[in-house]
Design a binder for these strands. Structure first.
Lengths: 206, 206
DNA sequence: GAGTATAAAAAACATTTGTTCTCCTTGCAA
DNA sequence: TTGCAAGGAGAACAAATGTTTTTTATACTC
């Protein structure tokens, strides 16, 4: 008793749906995908797949299929925040579905997120255009840290900078001699909002 | 608006359930887990979690929650077949839930499965007791291959052996001088059923 | 104490959805 | 042809389950 063409289609769709939506499809959703009208005939194929061991259903329960070969994994995906509006909270989950399949605890914090780096302003720190900067959220940082910051009224997006603090000023220094540092003194220092500290870099397509 | 203790419990359970069962829990299943009686109050917490972005529900649909931080991944887990009855087909999925979170294509075949090695009969091939032997299903093998075999009427479980073939006999040789080879001549050769060839070894707790 | 917000119990409701049954079509073999 | 099996259409049913509402209890604030 080998697998039918129809059964392959069903299994494939269940896998795809499961991956895309995060939960299994209902019988009627499978029907619509296969061009069937009613689940009456579909359920026979489902039964075959169950006998064959490809899926495992909980009888009577709704939308409860376990597809063998698929497992929900708590990778705790790292969210990629392409741009962060100044006022928005960091942790607001963008539904970009562009998350990195990496456990953020790997970088030391379950709240870590990623920023896609634009430009070459950090090139001397070996951070290239297009790299993903992994940021651990924290509101303060130490002298010399590379931080993700938002500068009020200057740019709506977060940028990476090297932090230089002394008694009278806060300096945001690029890691590229071509660019000028930004210096904030006095009241201006409050225009800087530190989102977090750089704790990792990922270069996906080298 | 930070996360409540109750909400943490709910989120945790949803994650656990997802991982264990392969699909999301229903509201009443969550209730039972938390000691609640009716889902009336639970749904408010669910709504909060949705606003907060931790989960994403499809309104009205049954058992349809996408938990952020969990993704169903087609790792095509490698099934661990602790023991294989002689007559049973290899690919019958044991619902042991002891699958290895490793893509079997990593070992060259999507049908690869794993056997837990018992004893030290393959110790000279550096395969220890408790190791997981990754087997690629195939019915024939070449001289010198390490294969998983079932010997008719002798043992119901599969074992690893080194295969030696010549014109008149098939020899199953352990990789340990303490044990004697098994030699099959003439008709006896049909008593051997080759399940597949060893393509990998995993030692989980070294 | 009065008022208020939160959490839960309890019950009822509406929809989704698995399941079953009957009938029809098609293909295949005797 | 006749018979049979598989696949699907269509309808109907029953259970699971999300949702809403009302009531009660507890804790907190003024």
């Amino acid at each position: 008793m080998s697998i039918t063409e129809r059964q392959k289609q069903i299994l494939n769709f269940m896998r795809l749906f499961q991956e895309r939506e995060g939960f299994p499809p209902s019988l009627r959703e499978i029907c619509k995908a296969l061009g069937l009208v009613s689940p009456g005939s579909l359920i026979k194929h489902i039964r075959s797949l169950e006998l064959q061991g490809s899926i495992k259903g909980m009888p009577g329960k709704k939308r409860a299929w376990k597809v063998v070969g698929i497992k929900p994994v708590t990778t705790h995906f790292i969210p990629v925040l392409g741009h962060i509006a100044a006022g928005r909270p960091i942790l607001a989950q963008e539904n970009k579905d562009e998350d990195l399949p990496i456990n953020p605890t790997f970088f030391g914090s379950p709240e870590a997120f990623a920023l896609r780096v634009k430009g070459d302003s950090m090139i001397d720190a070996h951070i290239q255009n297009g790299d993903l900067a992994i940021i651990r959220p924290q509101e303060d940082a130490e002298n010399g840290d590379i931080v993700a910051v938002i500068v009020e009224d200057i740019e709506p997006e977060a940028t990476l900078k090297i932090l230089r603090i002394n008694n009278e000023s806060i300096e945001l220094r690029p890691a590229n001699e071509v660019y000028e540092p930004l210096v904030f003194r006095g009241k201006d220092r409050s225009k800087i909002k530190i989102l977090g500290k750089l704790v990792g870099v990922i270069r996906a397509n080298p």
